[in-house]
Design a binder for these strands. Structure first.
Lengths: 186, 186
DNA sequence: TTGACAAGTGGAGCGTGCTCCACTTATAGT
DNA sequence: ACTATAAGTGGAGCACGCTCCACTTGTCAA
């Protein structure tokens, strides 16, 4: 990759992150981003094939941070497995609440979720949840454990979460508690 | 409502259902639907405020059918609670597989899921799942039962389901089994 | 039957995400 | 230093979803 191209790539990501932070994600158009980064629309799209993918790229930093923090926490903590699970779950809820708009946009993109699911980062997120689920799930095989980790993540996607919060009137704590009750076996 | 307006409303729904059936949902534009129904774009949008809502309206017939069938099944069956749960789950999977495109489009619409969640039909779907979950969930309160019903539905949303099918390579049967294992307590 | 007007219509036009391709430029071999 | 060319650029233009409002029409009281 040419050096100037790499600079453009970086500049796009930084500009998009800034604009998404300053205004709502929906209010920022691809034209806005290109203009703010002082590049052409074509260049923008060659680097990030659509707006959802760009949001995903911006999110990756945040998700990476969350996963890393989680791993550090697990390596240091000495509390009970149940508390570990609840702690990670709580952190994940906090993280999602912070980045709600961005994550909602990604989750509503028709094709972009496939990219996310295939990424190493998603695998790391799943592994994180598997680690805290394993000791509280009773005796189950790895495939089923992974399925449950996916299920926890799926349940907290923006649509479902918004429904539980707004229509059902549940607090984040109540949601965490309901998930805990469902998942805890041992 | 004026009689001619009602006719237009019906014609739109019928035309959209036909076009969505003949071609892929994404390939059918709102202009196509208006043209095929021989009405103006404005009329189309006054009746259905966006494409996702129109998809939802088309889906409502199918969802209603599924819920009704499920209720009939429950009123007639004499098999064990576990088998009842698995049967309803299996039917729901089949139903979703049939209407995948339409449901995926609804689920990716940013605002339309709120409409769906608020509808009586969604409540009926939840109640259906609550009925089969209740005997296999151990002793839990109604709120938590409802939460679990929502969770089953959330897990089977198009994105998550597609991931389990395609990336994880699970068959519908395996997915159903994993959910069963998670939900069965009694 | 006839007017008055609420109710309904339709399509020009807007801003969006995104594609395409004629053009420009960094780079590596001479 | 000088090309040759692969690599990268940028914006005109497309199709889309959707809004807006000048216009038409069904309805109903007189």
């Amino acid at each position: 990759m040419r050096k100037d191209a790499q600079q453009n790539r970086d500049k796009i990501l930084a500009t998009a992150a800034k604009l998404f932070h300053d205004q709502s994600v929906a209010a920022v158009s691809m034209k806005d981003i290109a203009a703010a980064a002082k590049i052409g629309i074509g260049t923008l799209y060659r680097n990030y094939p659509n707006k959802s993918e760009l949001c995903l790229a911006v999110s990756f930093n945040f998700i990476h941070q969350f996963v890393t923090d989680g791993q550090v926490y697990l390596s240091e903590t000495t509390v009970s497995p149940i508390e570990q699970f609840q702690h990670v779950l709580q952190r994940y809820l906090d993280f999602r609440e912070q980045r709600l708009q961005l994550l909602a946009f990604i989750e509503s993109g028709p094709t972009v979720m496939a990219t996310y699911y295939q990424s190493e980062l998603y695998q790391q997120l799943v592994v994180l949840f598997m680690q805290v689920l394993a000791p509280i799930s009773g005796e189950i095989e790895t495939g089923e454990l992974e399925f449950r980790a996916d299920m926890v993540i799926a349940m907290l996607k923006s649509n479902s979460y918004a429904y539980q919060r707004q229509q059902q009137g549940l607090s984040p704590q109540q949601i965490a508690e309901n998930i805990s009750n469902l998942m805890i076996r041992a």
